[in-house]
Amino acid sequence: MAFEILVNGASHRVETDPETSLLSVLRNQLGLTGSKYGCGEGQCGACAVLIDGRAVRSCITPVKHAAGRHVTTIEGLARNGKLHPVQQGFLDADALQCGYCTPGMVMSAVALLAKDPHPTDAAIRRGMEGNVCRCGTYPRIVAAVRMASKGAAR
């Protein structure tokens, strides 16, 4: 089947089974490999992207659910070379070790801050609970999101 999806502002036509995961379409058909496979079962958040501004786990989202909607991936966050405040926060807080969880963390944080622009640390931890960092960078990730929320307020 053919689907029209809007990814990072550009429209794409993809020819695939409607049950194919959005993650696979992004990575293998559109070459957007920033979203990662970590578990394929909705448990780690490495594949998080935004659909109409809401964070979803693209590994368990069939592509048909994204048809005709706005998908934002990590590649679409920076504007004209300027990093999104959350991306900048991750750099400033040095909130990455191997970096494999980072795109999913950033996307989840963007969605979190859209709902709650000034979260407490406890709210950040709660909001990010579905994302795993095996390198154990959690304290710095909380700091990164906190910095991003402050930066956005300026």
Binding site: L32, E75, L77, L83, Q88, L91, D92, L96, T102
Partner: peptide
């Protein structure tokens, strides 16, 4: 800071 951090936070 991580020398190539930008490549990681942008998914590049």
């Amino acid at each position: 800071p991580k020398v190539d951090g930008r490549a990681f936070v942008t998914g590049a």
